[in-house]
């Protein structure tokens, strides 16, 4: 009973975290059309920065090296992690969001991801290199003194609240004139520009908010696992987030949730608990990655809009000024309602 509960709660936490990742990517790609092929890098930056903000100072003599070590309380660490991811997104945006072909943008993000991966892995003094950070304190764990299972349930609640806030914010942006400008830019950047939209600024806004979201997911990740190392955030992890959004339905936050459940929870996380195949320890992960890649390609072929398609924007209905239609009909009598 306890084991199953703990397992389900763990999957629930991952579900919420992936929701946040997918919301972030949705703001970037689904709303604005930015091809961010290194989503997971911002998760790492957010996670690492929150980690070194909440860890105590580096212990001399221990084998773990890292910067900062500020012993800050967890809410501050959350803000630092989110801000760091947003700042990193801003810097990448300065390079990638200039008016380049969209494939260049994708290349730059991918390249920047490899670079950050290499630097974090090789620079031992930053976040302990390929070993990664360990022993990151969990929010309120010392105060609450709960059993591991109960703490997982508590964490599930915390992640749920943060996820709900992110969802709310993402929806509020979607429905606003800002979200509309983002979608116009996604549909046709040149036209939006010709209509007076400051496309660079709007795309940068989407880029940064998306990265902040992903960074928040990263903070939750490092809290939950209490550790983070480069092996946990390779390119294939970026693809899982992409798969969640494409399969679920880009441009729709409910789709992001559905996709996170289908891809990230059912496929990606649940299979991690399968026993390894003797003689070929990595085969399960290889098959999983192939399936996720295949799922995306099949989705794009059979249901390009994803499981839950983007909704049509609906405005609060206001009645037309009485007589407006008649006037229009009078002004051009012959063809008031015909098209061409």
């Amino acid at each position: 009973m306890g084991v199953i509960l703990g397992y389900v709660a763990t999957l629930g936490v991952y579900f919420f975290i992936y929701n946040i990742f997918a919301f972030g990517l949705n703001i970037q790609f689904g709303y604005t059309g930015i091809l961010d092929f290194t989503v997971i890098t911002f998760m790492a930056i957010g996670g690492y920065m929150a980690g070194v903000a909440s860890l105590g100072p580096e212990q001399p003599g221990s084998d773990i090296y890292y910067v900062l070590g500020l012993s800050l309380p967890w809410p501050v660490a959350l803000v630092i992690g989110a801000a760091a991811a947003g700042a990193a997104g801003y810097v990448l945006g300065l390079i990638a969001l200039r008016r380049l072909r969209s494939d260049y943008l994708a290349i730059v993000t991918l390249a920047a991801g490899s670079i950050v991966y290499g630097v974090i892995g090789n620079a031992n003094g930053l976040f302990d290199g390929f070993e990664g950070l360990v022993g990151v304190p969990q929010p309120l764990n010392g105060v609450l003194k709960l059993s591991p299972n109960s703490y997982t349930l508590f964490f599930l609640g915390l992640a749920g609240v943060i996820m709900a806030i992110c969802w709310f914010v993402a929806e509020r942006i979607y429905r606003s004139p800002l979200g509309r400008a983002m979608r116009a830019i996604r549909e046709d950047l040149d036209v939006a520009e010709a209509y007076g939209k400051r496309t660079f600024r709007v795309r940068m806004t989407a880029m940064v908010i998306g990265c902040v979201f992903v960074g928040i997911g990263g903070v939750l990740t490092i809290w939950f696992v209490t550790a983070l190392a480069p092996a946990g955030w390779g390119t294939s992890e970026t693809f899982v987030v992409w798969a969640a959004l494409i399969v679920g339905g880009r441009g729709n936050n409910l789709g992001a949730v559905v996709g996170s459940f289908l891809v990230a929870v059912l496929f990606n996380e649940a299979t991690r608990f399968l026993p390894a195949i003797p003689g070929h320890p990595s085969l399960i992960s290889e098959i999983r990655n192939m399936c996720i890649g295949g799922l995306v390609i099949l989705t794009l072929w059979f249901r390009p809009q994803g499981a839950v398609a983007e909704r049509k924007a609906r405005f609060f209905e206001i009645p037309l000024r009485p007589g407006a239609l008649d006037e229009a009909a009078k002004s051009v009598p012959a063809m008031a309602t015909s098209g061409s």
Binding site: S176, R180, A184, V191, G196, K197
Partner: peptide, 27 residues
């Protein structure tokens, strides 16, 4: 060059310039 995946009404709603609701803080 319409915005294909937006409704006709939305296509028009994008156009007004300097919309207050395009500022993140306000939103």
């Amino acid at each position: 060059r319409e915005y294909p995946a937006m409704t006709v009404l939305e296509n028009l709603m994008v156009s007004p310039q300097g919309q207050t609701g395009e500022h993140l803080w306000t939103v």
